[in-house]
Amino acid sequence: MNRIHYLFNTQKERVLSIYFTAGFPDLEDTLPIMEAIQAGGADIIEIGVPYSDPVADGPTIQDSNKIALDNGMSMKKLFEQLKGFRAKIHIPVVLMGYLNPVMQYGMEDFCKKCKEVGIDGLIVPDLPMQQYLEDYKGLFEQYGLVNTFLISPQTSEKRIHEIDENTSGFIYMVSSHSITGAKSGITEEQIAYFERVKAMNLKNPRLIGFGISDAETFTTASNYSNGAIIGSAFIKKIKDAQNLSQDIQEYLRGVKN
């Protein structure tokens, strides 16, 4: 069974997913960060594949992408690092990457490699639903990869239902009209949007991302969904970390409890 399905079948609340950029702050930090995220009590690991032009991301993640690329991170390198990670990591792992690097690697080779190393799902923010359905759905399914779509406050109900029909892992709710790391805190307007989507009774679980940074925002988001995703705030945390593993675990325990 896919680990993402297993997770949401057994845990409905306060699911915490943590994003980090592979190759940041140092090239070889990928596995130590994954272990620390798991040890800190997070439920999903989202590994960002760095890209030169991440249009959906704000300055914090842009910087981490740039540093990771300067450090020499690449898709090939990442798959080398991920070889054998399942010996230590048992929680679901999702790869988040923009379409171009994936295309250049070759979509089928990419999917095959993901399965081989033990990846459970993908987030390709600039792969539109229609293109996914026409060109890639078969491949993703063949290699047991769950595809995650994003929705935003602007997404129509009709489209949310279409997305719900065409995914089987979770729906990534972008909390506001923004790129990553642009806003912090949760406004009443956002809560109205969370409630509106909650009332739609979608078949898929929902995780809220963008603007989640601490115990308070995590709890608020979790009240209206199955949990939340932290990205930019986590990147900031590891950028300044003195002791990477220890700082990550402390931070995550603080968020969850």
Partner: peptide, 10 residues
């Protein structure tokens, strides 16, 4: 084509 993040779709 239109390869854009969902946030730009509307």
């Amino acid at each position: 084509g239109a390869y854009i993040p969902e946030m730009l779709y509307p």
